[in-house]
């Protein structure tokens, strides 16, 4: 098996898969998790699409990203420093997911050297993706960026408000309105 282009052992994959329980099924509009939940989990999305939003310190909720088949999602802040979740995740299509509690996931990470080594690689990938998003927000032609987003998040305009998409884009609502027309 490969993870971000790097080969990982079957033993590692099996022990990682073993840590997860499920399947959990969700219907469109249901939350995988909500803001303020104390028992948080790392989720693996087997099928289905959805969006997660972060509650910022000033009370704004901001679109953070999309959940799609084959990815791991969670409330990052809570995973890093504990405390209740500061984000939520709502599914847009029927979704099946598996989960592992944060505490068990962290323990697994600390004890599994292979996973720790892979984690640096996984997070380098996230850094790369986020860097790219930051640069696109600042420098990419907005019309091209909107086409790019629609390709990556099909149906985004059906599931997210125009304000949320404008914030995701870092443009004003009126600019977003013009782009979406």
């Amino acid at each position: 098996m490969t993870m971000l282009g790097k080969t990982v052992s079957t033993e590692f994959t099996c022990s990682l898969a073993h840590a997860f329980d499920g399947p959990y099924h969700y219907l469109p509009g249901e939350n995988i998790w909500e803001v303020g939940e104390k028992d948080c989990f790392v989720w693996f999305i087997q099928s289905g699409f959805g969006f997660d939003r972060i509650l910022l310190e000033d009370g704004h909720k901001m679109l953070n990203g999309m959940s799609e088949p084959g990815i791991f999602i969670c409330d990052e802040k809570s995973l890093l420093w504990g405390g209740p979740s500061a984000s939520d995740s709502i599914v847009s299509t029927p979704t099946t997911a598996y989960r592992v509690p944060f505490r068990e996931f962290r323990e697994f990470l600390s004890q599994n050297e292979e996973f720790r080594e892979n984690l640096a690689q996984i997070n380098a990938y996230f850094v790369h993706m986020r860097k790219l998003r930051l640069l696109k927000m600042k420098h990419m032609n907005k019309a091209d960026y909107w086409v790019d987003i629609k390709e990556r998040f099909p149906g985004i305009e059906l599931y997210c408000t125009q304000t949320e998409i404008a914030n995701y884009f870092a443009v004003s609502k009126s600019t977003m309105h013009r782009l979406m027309r």
């Binding site: 901001m62 990052e76 996984i122 997070n123 380098a124 850094v127 860097k131 930051l134």
Partner: peptide, 17 residues
Amino acid sequence: ALHSSYQYQKYINDFAL
């Protein structure tokens, strides 16, 4: 490792709003 990618999310949030 987790913190390195989380930091970037903060840059995005600060900038985008």
